[in-house]
């Protein structure tokens, strides 16, 4: 069985700054992997490498059996990777929660096609799992930070991905909301049979949920659990 995510000797430079210097990370199917490190350690960069929005200048990156260097356009692969970004969208764009979650289906619907009933069903199911069904008719910018984070999570779930990438999903949340969202993520990981890669600055928070933990420090990755 191939790894879901495999990074070998990956080097990334942003401008003149070396961010990743020979990072090796592996995630087998259905594993929950956490990458911890201080701010600026390159955690978000690592996620960008995995979902193909940033190309390393050296190394090997394989996701779901595809060598990312073999493809110019990775849209097909991104449809199978759910991403929950660190910054939940905070602008005042007029969009209902249910519409924001439905966006997760857009990559799979096809050009000039409208969302069908099955897409709406999957969006509503994702909202239910993320615990935001009661907000479906609210505008996203009317929600709190934690609720918006759940909208991002529901959108990623509606995508029905094989891999879930989470970028500091608990930042800016109080401790109660932090535990709540980590529990939700963990439940979803098992229920959906996902390979999950979560990055966080807080190793204590992720320890009990993770099969493996890597520490990212000075551009290198160290397996610490």
């Amino acid at each position: 069985m191939h790894h879901s995510i495999e990074l070998k000797d990956v080097y990334v430079r942003l401008g003149h700054v070396s961010v990743l210097e020979g990072v090796d990370i592996e995630a087998k199917p259905y594993e929950f992997i956490s990458v911890v490190g201080a701010n600026g350690a390159g955690k978000t960069t690592l996620l960008k490498v995995v979902n193909g929005t940033l190309r390393p200048f050296k190394g090997q990156v394989s996701v779901l059996g595809h060598d990312l260097f073999q493809f110019k356009n990775l849209d097909f692969l991104r449809r199978d990777i759910g991403l929950v970004p660190q910054k939940s969208n905070s602008n005042r764009f007029p969009i209902l929660v249910e519409e924001a979650v439905l966006i997760g289906r857009y990559g799979k619907i096809g050009f000039m096609q409208r969302p069908k009933e099955v897409d709406w069903d999957k969006a509503y199911e994702a909202m239910k799992i993320a615990g935001i069904s009661q907000f479906s008719k609210k505008l996203v910018h009317e929600l709190s930070g934690g609720e918006r984070q759940k909208v991002a999570l529901a959108r990623a779930l509606a995508q029905e991905p094989s891999i879930l990438l989470l970028d500091e999903p608990t930042t800016y949340l109080d401790s109660k909301s932090q535990s709540e969202i980590m529990e939700t993520i963990h439940t979803i990981h098992h229920q959906r049979g996902l390979t999950t890669l979560l990055v966080s600055h807080d190793s204590r928070l992720v320890e009990q949920y993770s099969d493996k933990i890597y520490l990212l420090k000075e551009g290198k990755g160290y397996l610490i659990k």
Binding site: N73, R78, R79, L83, P85, I95, I103, G104, Y106, G107
Partner: peptide, 21 residues
């Protein structure tokens, strides 16, 4: 292309992440 435009106006990063061009 309403749905593609809606996703991009909402958040370009998300539009890219869900596999839209």
């Amino acid at each position: 292309f309403f749905k593609e435009i809606q996703a991009i106006l909402y958040d370009r990063e998300i539009a890219l992440a869900v596999g839209l061009p």
